[in-house]
Design a protein around this nucleic acid. Structure first.
Length: 466
RNA sequence: GAUCCCAUCGUCUAGUGGUUAGGACACUGGCCUCUCACGCCGGUAACAGGGGUUCGAAUCCCCUUGGGAUCACCA
C-alpha cells in the first residue's frame, strides 16, 4: 500500500454529474494505479441545500460506474466540533479574528466597490479592532498575510502564483457558528492525510486561500491537480440544456458503465492513439499528470460509438440481463418468447444503446400486428404469395433448423421460383418482423423457432392476399 | 472590472525544435450483402493572429485576440 491518499468530495445538492464522475474516476484511477487509498467524503456543511436523496443518488452513480471507495463516506456535518476546535486555535494564535460587520453592510460595500470598478474584497474593518463587544453577532475571519505571493505547483497546470493583495480575509465561521467550505476542506484534507487533491479547476482560485490556511494551521500542504471542466457543444459549461448530465440518466438511456468510464477517461487524457481501455489498462496507463490543461467538449456521438463497441463485444448473457428493464419499461414480457441471449446476439451489431436494442427486440416477443406498407408495395403480390407458400412448405417439412439451414432453404426457394434472393428474403423479413430492417433471417428464425416462424408467415400471407 | 487558467481538423486528441502534422468520433466515396447494421478500403478537414529566439518552429519567449473559471456568512 502506498502513501497516496486521494478523495472525491461531492456536495449532496443533486445527482452525480458526468463532470463529477470524471473527477471521481481520475481520483479512483490514481489510487488504484499507485495502490493508494480512495476516500469518499460528503461535503454537506450547507445544511439548507444538502439532502439525503442526493447522497443516495451520488452513491448509486458511483457504484454503477464501479468506483468503489476504500474509506467513507464521511460526512462533514459530523465534524462540526472538530472545525470549531481549529477555529479556536486560530483565534488563540491571533491568526483569525472576530468580525462584527453585518451581511448588509458587506453587501453594500461590495456593490459599491464593483460599481466603482474596484476589487470587491473585504476592507479589513474589524481586522485590527481591539474592543470585543460581548454578545454581538459575529463571524470569524482568517487573518490572511498582506504582502507577497502564494503559489503552488499544480500537477496538471504547473506553477500557479497569486499576489496576496488579491486575497482578502475570508470568513471561516458563520454567525450561526457553522464553518465555511474553504475552512472545512482544509481541515478534512489535512486530518484525513490527503496527499493529492484532485478536483475540478473551478477550485484553482480557492487554492491559494487554502494553502494559506494549511500554513497557518501548521499542516503539510498536499499536492494539487486541477482537472479542466467539461463543456457543452457551445463551449459553455456543460448543463442540462446540453442534454443529460446525470450518470444515472445515462444508465437509463441504455449506456454501459464501461462505455461511460472509457469515454470520460479519454476526455482530457490519452495514451498514444489508443481509444479502447479496459479497466486494467486504464489503471495501468493512467497518470494524473498526463491530463491536459484545457477544457473539453462532451460529445455524445463518440460516447455512442464506444457504447456500441462495448455492446458488440459484450457477453450476451450479461447484456440480456441489462436489457430486461428496458423491455419491461415497454410493457413487454419475455416469458414464453425466444431466449433473450439469442435475441441479444442478433442485435449486438445493430444497437448503440440498450434502449435502441429494446426497440429492435420488440418484434421477437410481440408478433407484428401491422406491416411496413411502403416496403411491401415494392414487391409483386403474386410473387410474394408464392414465396410465402413455398416458405411455409419448406419450413413445415423440417423438424429443426439452424442458420445455415435457413440460408439453404431460402436459396432453394429462390431457385425454385426463379426469383432473386432479395425478392425472397425481404417479404419473409417483413412477415416475421413487420419491418424491412431487421437482423439476418437465419438469426431471426432460429431465435423465433419454426412454429412461430410458420405462423407469422401464414399471417402475413393472409394479409397480403387481402 | 480584477485575478487565475486555457488555445492542433466540427469534436476528443498525438506531437515535447527538423513529421507528407498522426489516430479516433462525426461526415463522405466504394466494397461486402436477403434488408438494416457490422466489417473492410479510400476521402474532406487543424497548428487563432502578430512579433521574436533559432540554420530550422505546432513545439521556446512576448504581445494581441478569443474562450473559460473565480471574486458569497454556496460548495
Amino acid at each position: 500500500m502506498s502513501e497516496l491518499r486521494v478523495r472525491f468530495a461531492p456536495s449532496p445538492t443533486g445527482y452525480l454529474h458526468v463532470g463529477g464522475a470524471r473527477t471521481a474516476l481520475f481520483n479512483w484511477l490514481q489510487a488504484r494505479k499507485e495502490g493508494g487509498t480512495f476516500i469518499l467524503r460528503i461535503e454537506d456543511t450547507d445544511v439548507e441545500r444538502s439532502t439525503k436523496e442526493s447522497v443516495d443518488a451520488i452513491l448509486e452513480g458511483m457504484s454503477w460506474l464501479g468506483l468503489e471507495w476504500d474509506e467513507g463516506p464521511f460526512y462533514q456535518s459530523a465534524s462540526f466540533p472538530l472545525y470549531k476546535e481549529y477555529v479556536q486555535k486560530l483565534l488563540d494564535a491571533g491568526k483569525a479574528y472576530r468580525c462584527y460587520c453585518s451581511a448588509e453592510e458587506l453587501d453594500a460595500k461590495r456593490n459599491l466597490a464593483m460599481q466603482e470598478g474596484r476589487k470587491p474584497k473585504y476592507d479589513g474593518t474589524c481586522r485590527d479592532r481591539s474592543d470585543l463587544p460581548e454578545g454581538q453577532p459575529c463571524v470569524v475571519r482568517f487573518r490572511a498575510p498582506r504582502g507577497g505571493v502564494t503559489a503552488f505547483d499544480d500537477l496538471i497546470k504547473g506553477k500557479i502564483t497569486f499576489p496576496n493583495e488579491e486575497l482578502d480575509d475570508l470568513i471561516i465561521q458563520r454567525t450561526d457558528g457553522t464553518p465555511t467550505y474553504n475552512f472545512c476542506v482544509v481541515i478534512d484534507d489535512a486530518t484525513m492525510r490527503i496527499t493529492t487533491v484532485i478536483r475540478g479547476d473551478d477550485h484553482v482560485n480557492n487554492t491559494p486561500r487554502q494553502v494559506q490556511l494549511y500554513e497557518a494551521l501548521g499542516f503539510p500542504v498536499p499536492q494539487f491537480a486541477h482537472v479542466p471542466m467539461i463543456l457543452g457543444s457551445d463551449k459553455a459549461r456543460l448543463s442540462k440544456r446540453h442534454g443529460a448530465t446525470s450518470v444515472i440518466a445515462y444508465r437509463d438511456m441504455g449506456y454501459l458503465p464501461e462505455a461511460l468510464t472509457n469515454y470520460l477517461v479519454r476526455l482530457g487524457w490519452s495514451s498514444g492513439d489508443d481509444e479502447i481501455f479496459s479497466r486494467d489498462e486504464m489503471i495501468r496507463k493512467f497518470d494524473i499528470s498526463g491530463v491536459g490543461r484545457s477544457a473539453s467538449v462532451f460529445n455524445t456521438e463518440k460516447l455512442n460509438w464506444l457504447n456500441a463497441h462495448y455492446i458488440k463485444s459484450g457477453d450476451p448473457q450479461r447484456l440480456a440481463d441489462l436489457l430486461l428493464p428496458h423491455l419491461s419499461k415497454r410493457d413487454v414480457s419475455t416469458a414464453g418468447g425466444p431466449d433473450m441471449t439469442l435475441v441479444v446476439k442478433t442485435l449486438q451489431q445493430r444497437a448503440q444503446t440498450l434502449e435502441e436494442m429494446a426497440d429492435r427486440a420488440l418484434f421477437f416477443y410481440v408478433a407484428p400486428t401491422s406491416y411496413d406498407e411502403a416496403a411491401l408495395a415494392k414487391y409483386d403480390k403474386e410473387k410474394m404469395l408464392a414465396v410465402y407458400d413455398a416458405a411455409v412448405a419448406k419450413f413445415s417439412a423440417v423438424s429443426s433448423i439452424d442458420e445455415a439451414g435457413v440460408e439453404a432453404l431460402l436459396k432453394e426457394i429462390s431457385l425454385d421460383l426463379e426469383l432473386k434472393m432479395g425478392l425472397v428474403g425481404q417479404p419473409v423479413r417483413i412477415a416475421l418482423s413487420g419491418s424491412a430492417q431487421a437482423p439476418g433471417l437465419g438469426e431471426i428464425i432460429v431465435a423465433l423457432g419454426l412454429k412461430e416462424t410458420i405462423s407469422r408467415i401464414q399471417k402475413a400471407r393472409a394479409f397480403v392476399a387481402g
